[in-house]
């Protein structure tokens, strides 16, 4: 599914946060947005998800205007936000239940993904009993079950330790072969963006503007261009 962010501007509490941001995510494409902390990346995702309306601009999904309307794309925030009151299986079925699917059927559907998401055998555990990496995978599965065609991921691995984070990045890269959703991924970690994304947008500090674009697929596997791209991005961010 195609996502088009057109000329979005937004002020929050009188602070000019987003300045005419335009981003295009093609069908099955993984797009990363890189930017300094606090530059308005999360605000952009809040707008795309429909939680807050933009001051200007439009959100088009598959050509249809979804500006300021929730319920179309799935959105995963920095924290896993799993309900402590439900076990893992009953947490990931929440989006299915909200769509009106019966509990037993929802459990069957969700359970068929458990092996791929590395959650098999932990269906009955509560979030508090699991490690951060597992919780993030569960949150990602819940996100995927809500809308599998467009995923917004807001620094999903930022709260994990370095080793788990790297494992999760590699896992996400591998699992995308079987689950080719369109993804808009926000991060401030250059390596993470370059490992995962097909294309990278670089934001300026507030108010966020797109200051650089990079097609990662063109340089993937070429260590020299990879390193120079990394330096280039670093320069832009400084």
């Amino acid at each position: 599914m195609e996502l088009e962010i057109q000329d979005i501007s937004k002020s929050l509490d009188r602070i000019y946060t987003l300045d005419k941001v335009s981003i295009q995510v093609k069908d099955q494409e993984f797009v990363a947005v890189l930017g300094p902390s606090g530059c308005g990346k999360s605000t952009l995702l809040n707008i795309v998800s429909g939680l807050i309306p933009p001051d200007q601009g439009r959100i088009l999904i598959g050509g249809e205007d979804w500006t300021g309307r929730t319920g179309r794309v799935s959105y995963m925030q920095q924290n896993d936000l799993l309900l402590p009151s439900r076990n893992i299986l009953d947490n990931v079925i929440v989006p299915l239940l909200l769509k009106g699917i019966k509990k037993n059927r929802a459990r069957d559907v969700a359970h068929s993904f458990f092996a791929d998401f590395g959650l098999e055998g932990f269906e009955g555990y509560y979030p508090d009993q699991l490690s951060g990496g597992m919780r993030q995978r569960a949150a990602l599965l819940r996100t995927y079950l809500f809308a599998s065609d467009i995923l917004l991921l807001d620094e999903p691995f930022v709260s994990l330790d370095a080793i788990t984070r790297r494992k999760m990045q590699l896992w996400l890269r591998d699992i995308r072969i079987n689950y080719p959703s369109s993804v808009l991924f926000v991060t401030h970690d250059i390596d993470e963006a370059l490992i995962l994304a097909d294309r990278v947008y670089v934001f300026s500090a507030r108010p966020a503007r797109v200051i650089y674009q990079l097609d990662v697929t063109a340089i993937r596997g070429d260590e020299h261009s990879y390193n120079s791209a990394k330096l280039e991005i670093l320069n832009k961010l400084m």
Binding site: L51, G71, Q77
Partner: peptide
Amino acid sequence: VDPEMIDLFRSMGASRLK
């Protein structure tokens, strides 16, 4: 209750009752 949790449910289109 974490307001982000409520935002997440809102983004999934949950009603106030839900």
